[in-house]
Design a protein around this nucleic acid. Structure first.
Length: 950
RNA sequence: GCCGGAGUGGCGAAAUGGCAGACGCUACGGUCUUAAAAACCGUUGGGGGCAACCCCGUACGGGUUCGAGUCCCGUCUCCGGCACCA
């Protein structure tokens, strides 16, 4: 694949042309925002990356998509904002710092420099004057300002929260750092839940708006919106107050004689009532989506962490309860929420009073009830909830049917599972006979009305969304700009003292609290009001805070007076097109929407949604070739001579063996590719399926070397053509060769004619009017065309302009490029037959360069220089198709008999229905398939087909 | 378990309800070359036929329609998200 000739060949795409154009674009500021003041705006944005250093071609995909769109809108005459920055705070820098004993800052800025140079080499163009780096004080200053804004608005608060605690390393762990057995990834110690004071953002206050406004986002992928809806997890129901019973209550029991009675008869509940004492002052609030089943609540379950557990536990149960609480504290989230686990729980020796019938019901604790959802307490209705049913069976608790399944009588003893479906209410006092359901006149609404009338509960809405825990006991992040005063109160660092600069420290290892706590000089401050000794908050912010508003900072990145000016935000926001990975479908996008709404409520941004359109691109994958031995031990037995060159037929059996063994590990057996010059493969390797390009998989192709050898334009075509951009795509050598061939063919077609094309163009030069939306029109030439071949090429050109335009705007880059390939094929044929440069061919050449501009920008600019000699192609305007030219004079119409294609005829395009019908019914081939049968019906679709039904 | 999405050649994929497989890759045959590579030309869903052509074919089973890859119902498989969420 490497060319041995040193001189660039004029009939091939030469990557050596690229650096010149990159420098030209940079110098001329072609892609800087604000270049066309009066033109309409576009804000195109790729999710900013964590600066990981050298980029590989997999990283490039995201940027290539954004770059293609940017170039498309620039050539169409828009004023485009296409900025870039770095999500530079975060754990990897800290881990590297711990490992290499160098400041995270140094490591981070080195990586930024490397990544930036990769982007430059690839010719991905940004307005670098707006670069944003989140670890720079002039950025995180505004992060701190934002924190204080939320604090002042009551949206930032401090509360205790359960976190994963590694008792060996004395540190807090993220959920992802705890394995399935609940052990720390680093120390291997059993992780505990520990309660710590943490900072939260009150995102739940925006839950309803975050949910409802999803409907406004018509240009977001449906699945992302669904994921956000699920995450917010709205459910409607009721909050019901269960008073706690005093002493002297008897447990709810099933009466022996009642067990075989049909519960469907609407009898009095077959239970005995205890002697109910007046309730003590404690009330347990319960959230339920099925308040109509209250009459079937036969016990209550609290989360082990529920605050009332300690208080309510009977003295004789205390030891047992405390043991259970301690045990569940040690369990990981994964263990605890495993659905296959058997139900466990402990009776705490206390009773609650069911408010609908004053029955005492026992209170249990169980880990299947989560403190984090609803109120951390449930009423258990075993007949109609599967979890409660399992719990009741496990511990012999009573089950009472209150929803009668339609058309069958049910004995609760025979139930094998709960009945969570519709039916008719029974055993439910005032609700008896009401249909079970959520609609008007149905049980849930009736139950809520009943509760509200009596002050025993109220209809309510519950969200699964939790408040956002933003404090981290970490070094490499934005310091939380708060001061803890002597009296225990907390106050913001005065605004004029911002930023609170992250101090330099030596030891980044967390030790139970933030590493910042060790920076005594930094921590100790004077109380801004009293001058008394006070201490800074030593936690840093979650990096998701940094990334929840960076797109706003781009609109006014140099502003050191405010976070951004309202005018700048109004000019550019919302982002017209946001591009990034699906992995951010929930957290980042939800947080960014939340912060934008907060700023909107402050009157700082013009729109309460940040991203008008969202595109989630697929990843770049590549197969990994590894020595056989490293895949599976059994492959080692593969005879040595077979791992070298082999005689296939003779050794087929062994090879088959190896192949089967490899398949078990999802690998394929392949002969090593021939080394250059050598004949055939000289050994065998195991080849994995396509896996995402990454440093850890070792299958990334570095951007720099690739671009120097093949060219950025080749990389772009590979990535954009191989598959629709939302799909994962496999990077292969064959794909690279195909892209190269495509560009070579373009150069091969136009290069020899460049002077003639430039000369031919003189008379009817394309108009260039950048501010015009539609671009330049192809029409001027149309009327002068006489030859059929010329007319056909002109039609194909217009057809292609239309397709490339529409496909580009709708992210179908693969089909846009396919259309360009197809037109190229036709044009090569045309040029060979014409034998000279005709006006239509020259027009095509000029136009083709423009159509190529979003996808192979360097070559497009080179072609433009050949043909037009001056200026950038991005100021030359985008071609508009000539709609009239798309109409063919003669078209092919398909003839069908009973829906099967039986022939085709060429007819004038204007032929009307009657004519088409006539031609079809007299067509020989059609007649032969009719075979004299009577014609029942003839369907004519003008311009398309005629279907004869017999 | 719940909620989504997707199943089309050897592969990546195309196809406003109207000629299934555009475009590309691979493979095979050919031209050029001492040879190879590159480039160029041709073939490439399956089956049948000397041929003109014919039959079958978009996961599976039904349905709607003159006509279904596309719409509807059911089944299977795969992928993704959530998951003891009361």
């Amino acid at each position: 694949m490497t060319t041995t000739t040193k001189k660039p060949r004029t009939d091939r795409f030469d990557p050596a042309i690229e650096p010149r154009w990159r420098e030209y674009w940079q110098r001329e500021g072609i892609f800087n925002a604000g270049r066309r003041h009066d033109a309409p705006n576009r804000y195109i944005l790729e999710m900013f990356p964590y600066p990981s250093g050298d980029l590989h071609v997999g990283h490039l995909k995201n940027y290539v998509i954004g770059d293609a769109l940017t170039r498309y809108y620039v050539i169409r005459g828009y004023d485009v904002l296409h900025p870039f920055g770095w999500d530079a705070f975060g754990l990897p820098a800290e881990n590297a710092a711990i490992k290499y004993r160098r400041p995270p800052r140094e490591w981070t800025y080195n990586n930024i420099a490397e990544s930036k140079s990769s982007l430059a080499i690839a010719g991905i163009m940004y307005d670098w004057s707006r670069e944003v780096t989140t670890c720079a004080p002039d950025y995180y200053r505004w992060n701190q300002w934002l924190f204080q804004l939320l604090y002042k608005k009551g949206l930032a608060y401090r509360a205790k929260s359960l976190v994963n605690w590694d008792p060996v390393d004395q540190t807090v762990l993220a959920n992802e750092q705890v394995d399935a057995e609940g052990r720390s990834w680093r120390s291997g110690a059993k992780v505990e839940k520990r309660e710590l004071e943490q900072w939260f953002f009150r995102i739940t206050a925006y839950a309803e708006r975050l949910l409802n406004d999803l409907d406004k986002l018509t240009d977001w992928p449906e699945r992302v919106k669904i994921m956000q809806r699920n995450w917010i997890g709205k459910s409607e129901g009721a909050e019901v107050d269960f008073p706690v019973a005093g002493s002297n209550v008897r447990m709810l029991e099933r009466s022996p004689e009642g067990s075989d009675e049909s519960a469907a008869m609407g009898d009095e509940p077959n239970v005995q009532r205890g002697n109910v004492q007046p309730a003590n002052e404690d009330v347990i609030k319960v959230f339920t989506t099925r308040p109509d089943t209250l009459w079937g609540a036969t016990f209550m379950v609290l989360a082990p962490e529920h605050p009332l557990v300690a208080k309510l536990t009977a003295p004789d149960k205390r030891a047992e309860v405390e043991a259970y609480v301690a045990k569940s504290k040690l369990e990981s989230e994964i263990e605890r929420t495993s659905t296959t686990k058997e139900k466990t729980g402990v009776f705490i020796g206390a009773y609650a009073i069911n408010p609908v019938n004053d029955e005492p019901i026992p209170i249990w604790i169980a880990d299947y009830v989560l403190m984090g959802y609803g109120t951390g307490a449930i009423m258990a209705v075993p007949a109609h909830d599967q979890r409660d049913f399992e719990f009741a069976r496990q511990f012999g608790l009573p089950i009472r049917l209150v929803v009668q399944p339609p058309g069958q009588s049910v004995d609760v003893d025979d139930l094998t599972e709960a009945w969570p479906h519709d039916g008719v209410m029974v055993n439910s006092g005032p609700l008896n006979g009401v249909p079970a359901g959520k609609g008007e006149g149905e049980s849930v609404k009736a139950a809520i009305a009943w509760l509200e009338e009596r002050g025993k509960g109220k209809g309510t809405i519950n969200y699964r969304l939790r408040d956002w825990l933003i404090s981290r006991q970490r070094y490499w992040g934005t310091p939380i700009p708060m001061i803890h005063r002597q009296d225990g109160s907390i106050m913001p660092v005065p605004e004029e003292q911002l930023p609170v600069v992250l101090p330099e420290i030596d030891d980044y290892l967390p030790k139970g609290k933030s590493p910042l706590a060790a920076a005594e000089q930094w921590v100790n401050v004077a109380d801004p009001e009293t001058g008394a000794p006070a201490r800074r908050d030593t936690d840093t912010m979650d990096t998701f805070v940094d990334s929840s508003w960076y797109f706003l900072r781009y609109t006014d990145a140099q502003n050191d007076e405010e976070i951004f000016s309202k005018a700048a935000a109004t000019r550019w926001m919302p982002v017209d097109q946001y591009i990034g990975g699906i992995e951010h479908a929930i957290l980042h996008l939800l947080y960014a929407r939340f912060i934008t709404k907060v700023l909107y409520d402050e009157g700082l941004v013009p729109d309460d949604e940040p991203f008008r359109a969202l595109f989630t691109q697929g990843m770049v994958q590549r197969r990994v070739r590894t020595p056989l031995e490293s895949v599976a031990p059994d492959i080692v037995r593969f005879p040595e001579e077979l791992r070298r060159k082999v005689d296939l037929p003779a050794e087929a059996q062994e090879i088959g063996h190896a192949r089967a063994a490899l398949k078990e590990h999802s690998y394929a057996l392949e002969q090593e590719p021939a080394q250059s010059g050598a004949e055939g493969g000289d050994g065998w390797v195991a080849v994995s399926g396509p896996v995402t390009m990454s440093k850890s998989a070792g299958n990334g192709i570095p951007v720099g070397p690739f671009v120097r050898q093949y060219g950025s334009d080749v990389a772009r075509i590979v990535v954009l053509f191989a598959a629709p951009p939302e799909n994962n795509m496999e990077w292969t050598d064959e794909g690279v060769a195909g892209a190269q061939r495509f560009l070579n063919r373009i150069v091969g077609l136009f290069s020899p004619d460049r002077q003639a094309i430039a000369g031919e163009a003189r008379g009817w030069r394309l108009e260039t009017s950048p501010s015009e939306h539609i671009g330049t029109s192809l029409q001027p030439l149309a009327s002068s065309l006489t030859a059929d071949a010329d007319k056909e090429l002109y039609r194909r050109l217009n057809e292609t302009v239309k397709k490339v335009t529409q496909d580009t705007e709708s992210f179908r880059f693969n089909t846009a490029i396919a259309a360009l390939m197809s037109l190229l094929n036709d044009t090569v044929d045309y040029r060979n037959k014409a034998g000279r440069v005709t006006p239509v061919f020259a027009l095509l050449a000029h136009t083709y360069a423009r159509l190529l501009a979003p996808f192979a920008p360097h070559l497009a600019e080179e072609l433009h220089a050949w043909f037009e000699g001056q200026g950038s192609i991005y100021d030359a305007g985008w071609p508009a198709w000539d709609e009239a030219a798309l109409v063919q004079e003669e078209i092919e119409v398909v003839l069908q008999v009973n829906g099967k294609v039986r022939g085709k005829i060429n007819v004038p395009a204007q032929a009307d229905e009657a004519q088409l019908r006539e031609w079809a019914l007299t067509n020989e081939r059609v007649l032969s398939f009719i075979e004299g049968k009577p014609v029942r019906k003839v369907i004519v679709v003008p311009g398309k087909l005629v279907n004869v039904v017999v």
